[in-house]
Design a protein around this nucleic acid. Structure first.
Lengths: 193, 193
DNA sequence: TATCTATATTAGACCGGTCGTATTTTAATT
DNA sequence: AATTAAAATACGACCGGTCTAATATAGATA
């Protein structure tokens, strides 16, 4: 991959995570990245195609990091899961509660706008929930946590809860919604408060 | 209130619920409403001020409907609450999962964009959670439901859960996330499945 | 080394749309 | 009839994504 392309992707991701997809023009992204405007269409077919590629690369990195967190040795699965939520909170609270999670920022905006980007979001979030479900299942077997219902539904519920909490954090500009989500999460996994 | 103003508000709300705030220009809204461009700035100081007024009027209506639902006689509070979630689901699933809830659609997009609109969202969502908390408290007293923890935290958690579920519904274009949310909701309120 | 070809890259213009404003026309009220 | 409020128009300066045409670069051939 050309590093010009990578540069456009990384810069665009940063800016779009703050202002949204429709709220940012290619001009700003390219100027910030130091890439001439004319070059853009050499690397991407359209703004939409760029958005799709951006989501793709975002989730690739996200899932790699998630795998790392969920495979930390010398920890129970319950601990690893709680570390994941803690990381989510820390990341999302940084920079005045304008976290950089693209599922949070773009989910509602982009799903109705572009089928390609919607599907990228779908693939990415499915990957996250799948990993969480597997982790919960493992945690049950090792006995570090227990749940009512099946692991997949539980993983789904928890992801939805944190997605919603992240939106609320943006709205109230306090990490308080995350504290509630954290307590509910412990409750759902039957962990000590 | 002038009905021209009301017309702009209603039309804008409909279109923005579909395309987002940055994704729609005043031209489209005004053309659809049949209102000349110049009139807009007689009623609203700017696009942002319009957005704030739109959110204000949206939540006003939303809260009135919520009050109606939560005050239905001849039902337990548990039943009224479950009716609320059911209405949420029905509304959000309509039109190809492009529901018309502005908290879902605009929360993440607009909170980082405009302080005035962020505060309008904050006031509106606070009103919803407050009413849900009161309803949960009443339900506990009458014995139709029971919870772990305090009513306000529970209300918050449930609202976050449904907010997140709504984003996921937009992404996967299936009502399945709502089914999970519904089950979790019954579980949290200790209701029979 | 010099020339030709093919590909990678970029400059710049295009047209349509953005929000906002200044000005004129219409209506209502005193 | 005078004054004020409401509505309509047209326009301005600017920015949006897109595309074509021109340039630069690299590789191959002689």
């Amino acid at each position: 991959m050309s590093d010009v392309r990578e540069n456009i992707l990384a810069t665009g991701q940063r800016i779009i995570a703050g202002k949204g997809f429709s709220g940012v023009g290619l001009n700003e992204i390219l100027a910030t990245a130091g890439v001439p405007k004319g070059s853009f269409y050499h690397y991407f077919g359209s703004k939409e195609a760029f958005g799709e590629a951006m989501l793709e690369s975002y989730f690739e990195e996200y899932l790699a990091e998630l795998d790392r967190t969920l495979n930390q040795p010398a920890q129970t699965m319950a601990e690893r899961l709680m570390n994941y939520w803690q990381d989510w909170q820390d990341n999302q609270v940084s920079f005045d509660c304008q976290g950089k999670c693209l599922a949070v920022k773009l989910g509602a905006e982009v799903a109705d706008l572009s089928e390609a980007m919607r599907l990228a979001l779908k693939r990415g979030t499915a990957g996250i929930i799948e990993r969480l479900a597997k982790a919960i299942e493992t945690g049950m077997k090792e006995g570090s946590l227990s749940i009512d219902g099946d692991p997949y539904s539980t993983a789904q519920s928890l992801y939805q809860l944190w997605l919603g909490a992240s939106v609320m954090v943006k709205i109230v500009r306090t990490k308080q919604p995350f504290e509630t989500a954290m307590r509910t999460t412990r409750q759902v996994l039957n962990l000590s408060t």
